[in-house]
C-alpha cells in the first residue's frame, strides 16, 4: 500500500506537485495520466525517492520512506522507464540479475529466476540469456526491462511510460502480458502514461493530474461516464467514445445469464467492443457466452450493448457531440 499525504514538490519557483494526497491499495493497478508537465512523472519518481518530496509524507505499508536508505527502498521496487536503460555492456542475464545480485542472492537461485522471467516474458532463455541489448529489437529490450524490474520479486512496480516508444502491435502484446503477470503475482503497479486508451485498458483506477494537482481519481468506467472536468473529457477524447465505453465492460457483465444459445461462444472476459465487432462480423444480434471452464454463461444481445446505463448521461452527451 502506497500513501501520499499532502505531498508537494517545487523546482525553483515552479510547483510540480501541489499538496497531493492519494492511496494505492495492495495489488492495485494505478495509472497516473495527464498532459506533459502535469507532475505525473514527478509523483512516480518520488515513490522511490529519485526525487525527494518537499512537504508531506509518503508511506509504504505505513512506513515513511524517509526512514529507509534510498538504495534499500529502490531495491524493494521494480522500476521501468521509456528509454529502457539496459546496461549495454552486460548480457541479458546479467541485466536481469542486477537487483538480485545487489541483494546477494545465491547464484543458482539467480539463474533459475532469470530463466523463469525470460519464459514469463516470452523470450527463449537459451537464445537470449547470453545476448547483448543491442542485438535485441525495441520490444525485446523492453521485455528484458520489465523482467529486470520484476527480478527480485518486488511488491511494487513503478513504470514511467514504459511502452510509449513501441509500435502498436508490440505495445498491445506487452500490455496484455503485463496484465497477466500482475494478476498472477498480485504486484502493486503505479503506471505513468499520456495514452488514455492504455490507461483504460490496464488500470483498476486512473488518477488524472493537471498542473501538479490530482483532479480526478476513479475507475475507468467512472472516468468515461462521469469526467470531473473538461480536461478529463478531452483526455478521453470524443472520437469513438461509444467503443471506449464498451471496452471497459465485459461480455459477462451484460449477458442474460439464464438464456442459452448454440454456436461459437465468447469467453466471459471478452471486452464488449470486441463482442460488438464479432456480432457485425457474423451478422447476428445474439452471441452465446461461456465461462472460463467452457460452461454456458448466458447470451449477449445487441440491444443490451446499445442500452445506456443510467449514469452514462454525461458521457453520452460527449459522444453525441463528436
Amino acid at each position: 500500500m502506497i500513501q501520499f499525504e499532502r505531498v508537494s514538490k517545487r523546482f525553483g519557483s515552479w510547483t510540480a506537485v501541489d499538496t497531493v494526497s492519494f492511496t494505492v491499495d495492495e495489488g492495485e493497478f494505478r495509472v497516473l495520466i495527464g498532459p506533459s508537465g502535469s507532475g505525473k512523472s514527478t509523483v512516480l519518481r518520488m515513490i522511490n525517492r529519485l526525487i525527494p518530496a518537499d512537504g508531506g509524507a509518503i508511506r509504504i505499508d505505513g512506513e515513511d520512506i524517509v526512514s529507509l536508505k534510498p538504495e534499500e527502498l529502490r531495491r524493494r521496487m521494480g522500476y521501468v522507464i521509456q528509454s529502457v536503460g539496459l546496461f549495454p555492456h552486460w548480457t541479458v542475464e546479467r541485466n536481469i540479475a542486477t537487483v538480485p545480485a545487489l541483494l546477494g542472492w545465491p547464484k543458482p537461485r539467480i539463474r533459475d529466476r532469470v530463466t523463469e522471467l525470460l519464459e514469463m516474458l516470452n523470450l527463449d532463455p537459451r537464445r537470449y540469456r547470453g545476448a547483448y541489448p543491442h542485438q535485441l529489437s525495441g520490444g525485446q529490450q523492453q521485455r528484458v526491462g520489465v523482467a529486470r524490474a520484476l527480478a527480485a520479486e518486488p511488491r511494487i512496480l513503478l513504470m514511467d511510460e514504459p511502452f510509449s516508444a513501441l509500435d502498436p502491435i508490440t505495445r498491445a502484446s506487452l500490455q496484455s502480458e503485463l496484465s497477466a503477470i500482475r494478476h498472477r503475482t498480485g504486484t502493486t503497479v503505479v503506471f505513468v502514461t499520456h495514452d488514455m486508451d492504455e490507461a483504460l485498458r490496464l488500470a483498476d483506477r486512473i488518477a488524472v493530474m493537471d498542473h501538479g494537482r490530482m483532479i480526478q481519481c476513479a475507475t475507468p468506467l467512472e472516468i468515461l461516464t462521469r469526467p470531473a472536468s473538461p480536461l478529463v473529457r478531452d483526455l478521453v477524447g470524443r472520437e469513438e467514445w461509444g467503443l471506449k465505453r464498451l471496452a471497459v465492460e465485459t461480455a459477462g457483465d451484460r449477458a442474460r445469464r439464464q438464456e442459452r444459445l448454440g454456436g461459437i461462444a465468447l469467453p466471459v472476459e471478452t471486452p464488449l467492443h470486441r463482442a460488438l465487432s464479432e456480432m457485425v462480423a457474423r451478422g447476428t444480434e445474439r452471441l452465446p457466452v461461456v465461462d472460463g471452464d467452457g460452461r454456458p454463461a448466458g447470451v449477449l444481445h445487441l440491444s443490451d450493448l446499445v442500452r445506456s446505463m443510467p449514469d452514462d448521461a454525461a458521457g453520452g452527451q460527449a459522444g453525441g457531440r463528436a
Partner: peptide
C-alpha cells in the same frame, strides 16, 4: 536512461 535505470534499481 542507463544511469537513470541504475539509480532507480538501487
Amino acid at each position: 536512461g542507463v544511469r537513470e535505470a541504475a539509480r532507480g534499481m538501487g
